[in-house]
Amino acid sequence: MDPFVVLVLCLSCLLLLSIWRQSSGRGKLPPGPTPLPVIGNILQIDIKDVSKSLTNLSKIYGPVFTLYFGLERMVVLHGYEVVKEALIDLGEEFSGRGHFPLAERANRGFGIVFSNGKRWKEIRRFSLMTLRNFGMGKRSIEDRVQEEARCLVEELRKTKASPCDPTFILGCAPCNVICSIIFQKRFDYKDQQFLNLMEKLNENIRIVSTPWIQICNNFPTIIDYFPGTHNKLLKNLAFMESDILEKVKEHQESMDINNPRDFIDCFLIKMEKEKQNQQSEFTIENLVITAADLLGAGTETTSTTLRYALLLLLKHPEVTAKVQEEIERVIGRNRSPCMQDRGHMPYTDAVVHEVQRYIDLIPTSLPHAVTCDVKFRNYLIPKGTTILTSLTSVLHDNKEFPNPEMFDPRHFLDEGGNFKKSNYFMPFSAGKRICVGEGLARMELFLFLTFILQNFNLKSLIDPKDLDTTPVVNGFASVPPFYQLCFIPV
């Protein structure tokens, strides 16, 4: 058959498939802009700032609406009420993970971030239990974070109060905490193996944040037939998995079943207990991918939040002064901060919360999916439909947070200066898919920041009023603009 005829037939089939998918069930789905064949609503979305586009569309179609990214149908949730109703009140029905062709290629359905069903539930339950087990290797997770915080302070001392970009050092600290939990080992910041790991993690975040990856996920045929950065992403992930597998083999040879040292040991012990169960989800494949998931999810998000926190503290020296006064009063100079201190430091706690609220790190979270046909607000959402959640619409709700575009710790303080919780605080998402490392991340943010401010004054290279804190939105995360500062020993 003539190649031209084959091409026309293929394009015609794709067009018909697109029209059929977009028209099927439209009477039951939430409203939304009319999609174009094949490309859907992509032309109506700013790929570099999806969150802003969703906010604009919500003003037209309401808090629940339908979009098509290519052939992929998505239902968008915008605003606290619908997000709570879906992710919390109907948590089980909305607990699936959205379709990610690239991740599915890399992870093969294993791990904790992109798995679904029984596998996801069992691996998540085990990971939560293990991360909360403060007795691994007779050292609590808090001990590990405190140790890394001391190392971080010593690295900052080496800058000798000269101007520096904190990106690298602030990236090393949370990565080392995860390494300590998974591998029972922290690395020197100049260790070549550690630097290679950091390089792969950072490069992957840069790649994932590009519009090209959005295109690959919406048109998965590209993955096999086109060159691009997605190939580098898959190569980096394969490198990390190979490295983790080597460490798993080392653990198998040296493990003491009665004295687990780290996450890998705990997983291997669980595998041993379930070795007679042919349906067990505790396999080497799941261990390797879960460890890679924890490394990827637990490094860049925390380091970016820390980097943004220091920029905001530079911009608002009056806030920094209040935090340091609270540190001096509650902790002093002669001991290290600990998590028990947080309950006695409402202002510092409010500042950490406000940093996370203000920066809105992951504006749309990772997409969910419905696990069955769901009736939601008089609409029928078919099983498997991807759910896109606007966390921006919750964290920047102007009824809950007056002047949401302003950095103001009073958003989390009552009139008496006591810490005030808010149900709208969802930087880790909400419901059954809430970030498994939430507790660890909150511990790291509090301890790293208090250790830094206990030991250093922060000095800006320019007038604080002239510092730009506008986030650089890159399609996946909101990151701070480049800046330098000086760490002046107190």
Rank of each mutant, 00 (worst) to 15 (best):
Q192K: 15
D143R: 08
K247L: 12
I215M: 07
F226R: 04
N258F: 08
R157S: 11
F69A: 10
V82Q: 05
A291R: 02
A161F: 06
G171V: 06
I215Q: 05
E438G: 06
F126A: 03
G228T: 05
V374L: 12
T385H: 04
D414C: 09
S365L: 06
C435S: 01
N231D: 09
E122C: 11
L170N: 01
I284E: 08
E415Y: 06
G25Q: 11
K249G: 08
L380E: 09
I47H: 15
I19P: 05
E81T: 08
T385Q: 04
F476E: 03
T364C: 14
P480N: 10
S12T: 14
I141C: 08
S303Y: 05
E142C: 07
K28Q: 12
I264Q: 00
H78T: 11
L461F: 12
L294D: 01
P220T: 09
V75R: 00
I178L: 12
P37Y: 02
K185E: 14
I47M: 13
E81H: 08
E253G: 10
H251P: 00
L71N: 07
H344L: 15
T385R: 00
R342P: 07
L170Q: 00
D243L: 15
E444D: 03
V472L: 12
V288P: 01
S390A: 08
T450V: 08
I47V: 13
G384K: 06
C435V: 02
I60S: 15
L295G: 01
R357A: 01
S95L: 05
G171D: 09
E246I: 14
M426Y: 08
P382I: 03
A106W: 05
I434C: 08
L54D: 01
C10D: 00
D165T: 04
T130K: 14
Y225S: 09
I244T: 04
C266R: 09
K322R: 11
Q356T: 06
R342H: 11
A309L: 07
E405A: 09
L237C: 08
T469P: 10
L233M: 09
R329V: 11
P402R: 12
G384F: 03
R132D: 11
M426P: 03
F110K: 12
Y68Q: 12
S422R: 03
L310Q: 00
